[in-house]
Design a protein around this nucleic acid. Structure first.
Length: 107
DNA sequence: CCCCTGACGGGCG
DNA sequence: TCGCCCGCCAGGG
């Protein structure tokens, strides 16, 4: 505890709170956790494989592009988002500014 | 111990 | 608005 694993848990905790059909970016989560390193968020997400409770497909980069879709395998990430009502065109979320969920504001 | 990489973001021209 | 560069934190070679 009180180690890097704490970061993973905090990231997963926030991601789990993302409402269905909503998305957020790495920077918002990083800021919410009190860090300036958005890379660490992506790094933590890389370790979320195997954890079904973490809807990592709802986490994209600042421009709404499914940057982590390659880690899901094929268009798995896009299908998961579309299944929730999120339209994705060319690996990019449509109306990202509207679907954006900021933990610093909503939480 | 040094260098590179990574599911990123923000600032500057 | 687009492109380039730097900063951030940790792990691996």
């Amino acid at each position: 505890m009180a180690s890097t694993e704490n970061i993973f848990d905090e990231v997963y905790q926030v991601v789990r709170m993302i409402p269905t059909g909503r998305v957020t970016n790495y920077g918002a989560i990083a800021k919410y956790l009190g860090t300036n390193s958005s890379r660490m968020i992506g790094w933590a997400m890389n370790a979320c494989h195997g954890i079904d409770d973490v809807p990592a497909h709802r986490v994209v980069n600042r421009i709404g592009v499914l940057s982590g879709k390659l880690h899901f395998g094929g268009n798995r990430m896009q299908e998961l988002l579309e299944a929730e009502g999120v339209k994705v065109i060319n690996d990019k979320i449509v109306d990202f500014n509207k679907l954006f969920w900021d933990p610093n504001v909503e939480l």
